[in-house]
Write a protein that binds this DNA or RNA. Structure first.
Length: 454
DNA sequence: ACGACAGACTT
DNA sequence: AAGTACATGAAG
């Protein structure tokens, strides 16, 4: 946690660089704000500082309606914190603690439930469950603001099983009832519309061509200022369309989904696919140390992702030893042959479909077809198939494939693809004595910087 | 490792 | 007058 006098100066100057790093609670109003809040700064003796919005809420304050501290980017606080804790937080943001109890949840992280509790208490000052509920309320608040969904549906989509509990919890966390938060000004529409904001800068000019070069007709599409794609995963089918609004530092996203319960994890995946949660400025500063001045570092670089780990793995295998264009052709054939179709929409094939298929239609070496089949089979037989480290045991899958999948499928921030041909060439040409370890824990962004020069 | 208790959850 | 939507107390 920052020192109080640092917080004081940061909030007086409304310095955007501190946004999200701490929250200012005002005793006289019972409201907590971001450091950038446009409201007149309160007297120092009336404020308390908290490292996270959740803690300010827990102490009885409600989020400010002007600066919306509940919307501040949520990644800054946990940088450098223990990996178990950050993994737990990421899972909670995905909504995994909603339908699992704590012991089960802790087991997935490989620790006991008591220890997990202790970790949360020490770093966040709240229990995992309390934290999860707070996140559910924030999510509900966004839905109330930006959609027309009736309260009951909002409750379900936010992971509550009874409206009674929802109302109660919402009131406790935000000091307002759901209807008080609802704005009546929204136009009615069948699709869910949400704004997903990010911490600037966001280099759309890097992300856009990267995505556009890999689009498959029917599955996804990318134009000058938007990206759309279909998805099918965990029995949920849907699609989204994200329009970039650079002046507002956000994407306007419309989502179609056949099961509202999946809304939270879906949004989480969209955020990851567009890499909305990283603190680009912090990354840039670290990379600058590793690649000093004459090197043309780009601001706001992101890691464009894929929908699932399976898709990332499949694309990595199909991309072995071939160009982006050739890989795209293979992916297209795979989708056209094995993917489900709904009207003009196409879906990425499931592990089951790939495992069951005769892959002779793919124009690539037999050994690679076998690898693809093995990967799909791994998905059908293994309880936690999304752990790419375990893929190394599969024939034909080496470090490059695993790292590529980690980078694009999981959005892992610290993967250096040193073995990649493109990366190698750029390093050789521009910065032969590069030490990638100096870019930790942002080596994935180093990889993207190098790729963007290729 | 374990019991007590708070609070999460349902009706 | 009946029905819908939301909020909330009580109890286990």
């Amino acid at each position: 946690m920052l020192q109080p006098h640092t917080c004081q100066r940061a909030r007086r100057s409304r310095d955007a660089r501190f946004d999200g790093q701490f929250f200012t609670a005002v005793l006289t109003t019972g409201i907590y704000c971001r450091s950038i809040c446009p409201a007149p700064s309160p007297k120092e003796e009336n404020v308390r500082y908290y490292p996270s919005a959740a803690q300010a809420a827990q102490a009885g304050f409600r989020p400010c309606l002007r600066c919306r501290p509940d919307c501040a980017p949520n990644s800054a606080v946990w940088n450098g914190v223990d990996t178990t804790l950050s993994r737990a937080i990421a899972l909670i943001h995905r909504g995994d603690l909603q339908d699992q109890n704590l012991p089960e949840f802790a087991e997935r992280l490989g620790v006991g439930d008591r220890y997990l509790r202790q970790l949360f208490q020490k770093h966040l000052g709240l229990s995992p469950k309390t934290y999860a509920l707070y996140q559910q309320c924030l999510f509900a608040k966004q839905l109330l603001h930006q959609t027309q969904l009736p309260i009951h549906q909002v409750a379900v989509a936010s992971g509550f099983n009874s409206v009674r509990r929802f109302n109660d919890c919402f009131q406790k966390n935000l000091k307002l009832t759901p209807t008080q938060v609802r704005r009546q000004t929204n136009p009615a529409s069948e699709t869910i519309q949400l704004d997903l904001s990010y911490r600037p800068p966001y280099n759309w000019d890097q992300v856009q061509p990267f995505l556009a070069a890999r689009t498959i007709e029917g599955l996804d599409a990318c134009d000058a200022n938007s990206y759309r794609r279909t998805f099918q995963h965990d029995g949920v089918t849907g699609s989204f369309h994200a329009i970039h609004q650079p002046t507002k530092n956000r994407f306007q996203v419309s989502i179609e989904l056949d099961d509202l319960q999946a809304l939270r994890p879906t949004i989480q995946r969209i955020r990851r696919l567009l890499d909305l949660d990283v603190d680009s400025e912090a990354v840039f500063a670290t990379l600058r140390e590793c690649l000093p001045e004459p090197f043309p570092l780009k601001q706001g670089l992101r890691i464009p992702g894929q929908w699932t780990m399976f898709e990332a793995g499949v694309r990595a295998v199909l991309g072995q030893q071939v160009t982006v264009v050739a890989a795209k052709k293979l992916v297209r054939t795979l989708i056209e042959t094995l993917g489900e179709t709904q009207g003009s929409q196409r879906f990425f094939p499931t592990p089951r479909a790939v495992a069951a298929a005769d892959l002779s239609f793919l124009k690539m070496p037999q050994s690679r077809k076998n690898t693809l089949a093995t990967l799909a089979h791994h998905y059908l037989t293994h309880p936690e198939p999304d752990q790419p480290e375990a893929w190394l045991a599969l024939k034909g899958i080496g470090p490059w494939t695993v790292n590529y999948a980690k980078l694009r499928g999981r959005g892992d921030p610290d993967v250096f693809l040193g073995g990649d041909l493109g990366v190698k060439k750029v390093v050789q040409q521009h910065t032969p004595d590069l030490d990638p370890n100096r870019a930790a824990p942002w080596r994935s962004y180093l990889t993207m910087q190098l790729w963007s020069m290729y």
